[in-house]
Design a protein around this nucleic acid. Structure first.
Ligand code: MN
Ligand code: MN
Ligand code: ZN
Ligand code: ZN
Lengths: 137, 137
DNA sequence: ATTGAAAATGAAAATCGTTTTCATTTAGGT
DNA sequence: ACCTAAATGAAAACGATTTTCATTTTCAAT
């Protein structure tokens, strides 16, 4: 247990959900300017290996690390502001397990994601469109 | 409409599902050795832009291009042999639309994927384990 | 048929997040 | 205090994707 490791672990759990390496690296560096990027990366991997987090890829090319929850959850990912909203997927996991069985497939993990636009962004986009329409006349 | 483009389009639709750039590139090169990688890549993007295919990321870091189907489908992805099995997700899309509405989220696309082991791989892994157990005694 | 502008191509380089390498330092048991 | 295994940080390697740029090709207008 090194001081770097302790700092990295603590910072990760303070940040909560959907943390990228860069984000955690930035946060860690604010407290210890000497910690290396690879150390942050390795410790995030470690946190995953010991089962406290798992990698999640939400379609923008960067891997994020999400704490594991008792009940499985999916993500609503806003394409505009990148915000992530979680929702429970208990019912659907049941369905997926069933489908898997049908296909003689042994499931390990489920990924249920919706891409679209959050409340706020949807409104803002509407406003912009309205503005454009008006300008056109 | 260039000969390269025609060849690439034709090859893509012959190959069917879940094609990576590399795979399509290989196939195209068998018929015209001079086609460039970037041309294949660009035309694949174009096929997506005109709505005939869409990118799909099944967690192994390479983007694949899947023809769009009338009914939305999900993927069972075998972690061992990388095989992809499709299944219909009509029921679940309904549920997801509902959840989205609850959260004031405007959905655009749904991604439903199961990672695990296909029939064949599961059996092979069992055999290997049995063998190991036997050897231990 | 000729021309010219716009689009497409191919080779190479750039990008960018991730992962590995390696020399050095540190932790923790003896 | 000493030793060994593990951890660290800087830099390089990696691999898929994307961009750049000089050249070629298409296609519509003459
Ligand atoms: Mn989450
Ligand atoms: Mn598919
Ligand atoms: Zn948003
Ligand atoms: Zn398999």
């Amino acid at each position: 247990m090194t001081p770097q490791r302790e700092l990295i672990f603590r910072s990760f759990f303070e940040m909560g959900k959907h943390v990228s390496v860069d984000e955690l690296y930035d946060k860690v560096r604010k407290q210890d300017h000497s910690v290396g990027y690879s150390t942050v990366w390795r410790n995030l991997k470690l946190i995953c290996k010991v089962g406290l987090a798992e990698e999640v890829n939400i379609g923008d090319g960067v891997t994020r690390y999400d704490r594991v929850t008792k009940v499985p959850h999916g993500h609503l990912f806003c394409l505009r502001c990148k915000r992530v909203i979680e929702f429970s997927v208990q019912q659907m996991v049941g369905i997926l397990a069933h489908i898997s069985q049908d296909k003689n497939f042994t499931p390990e993990t489920f990924k249920i994601e919706v891409q679209g636009y959050c409340d706020k962004c949807q409104k803002e986009m509407n406003e912009i469109n309205t503005y454009k329409e008006t300008a056109k006349m």
